[in-house]
Amino acid sequence: MDQALLQRLDRLESIEAIRQLAARYSLSLDMRDLDAHVNLFAPDIRVGRDQVGRAHLKAWVDETLRHQFTGTSHHLGQHVIEFVDADHAIGVVYSKNEHEAGAEWVIMQMLYWDDYQRIDGEWYFRRRLPCYWYATDLNKPPIGDMKMRWPGREPYPGTFHDLFPSWKAFWANPPARDALPEVAEPAPLEGFLRHMRGDTPAPRIRVR
C-alpha cells in the first residue's frame, strides 16, 4: 500500500477516534464514571493554574458535579475537526445540555473549542475550552443580555461568540444599500477553524 493511501486511512481513523472521544466525554460525564472521564485527557493535563494530572482533574470534576447538579445530559451536535499535523488537531463541538439543579431544570447551549493530541497511538483531549451561549430554567427563555442564568447566581454573559471576531464585525459593519458585498477568498481546507478564529485569545471562562 502506498504512503499517500496510508496517510489518508490514518486521517480517517483519526477523525473517527476524535469523534468517539467527544461522545465518550458526554457519556462518562452524565453517568458519573469519573475514571473513564478523566482518562480521555492527556496524562499530564493541566488543571487550573498550577495543578497537573488526571487525579487533580478527577477531584475538580467530582466537586463540580457533586455540589451543583443532581443529573446532567449532554447532546452533541456538529463537530468540525482540523489537523495541525498527524498527531495534533483542533475541533469545535456544539453541545445542548440539560441539568437538574435543585428545584430548577436548567437548559444550556454551548460549544467546545478542543485541542487533541495523539499519544502512543491514542487520541486524547489536550484542552477543552467551553464557550456558553445561555443557561436558564426550562420555562424562562434567555431573551436579552446576561444569558447565563444559574439558580442562586447573578446573571452573567457567556462566551459563545468571543472566539470568533466575525460576530462583532457582522454587527459593526452593515452592508451598503444597493451594493453587492465583497466576498473574501476561501480559507484553506485545513485552516478553516484557525482562519475563523484568527489570533483571538481564549476568553476567561467563569465556572458554572
Score class of each variant (00 low, 15 high):
Y25S: 07
A59M: 03
F160Q: 07
Q68E: 15
R19A: 09
I119T: 08
T64G: 09
P188H: 03
N139Q: 11
R149W: 03
F170N: 03
R197S: 06
R194S: 15
V61P: 08
F83I: 02
A135C: 05
R194G: 12
F170A: 02
A202P: 01
H161R: 14
E100W: 12
R8E: 12
R153T: 08
L57C: 06
G71Q: 15
A23N: 09
K168H: 02
D115R: 15
I143A: 09
W123V: 02
K96W: 13
R19C: 12
T200C: 07
E16N: 08
L163T: 07
R66P: 02
E13P: 05
T136F: 02
I81E: 11
G198R: 02
I90C: 10
H67Y: 11
L34H: 13
A36H: 10
I15R: 14
H195K: 03
R19T: 04
Q20L: 07
N139F: 09
K168C: 00
L129P: 03
G121P: 01
A86V: 07
S95I: 11
R194V: 15
L40I: 06
L9I: 14
E13M: 13
T72N: 09
E13I: 10
M110G: 11
F170R: 06
N39A: 06
A172C: 00
V52F: 13
L180K: 03
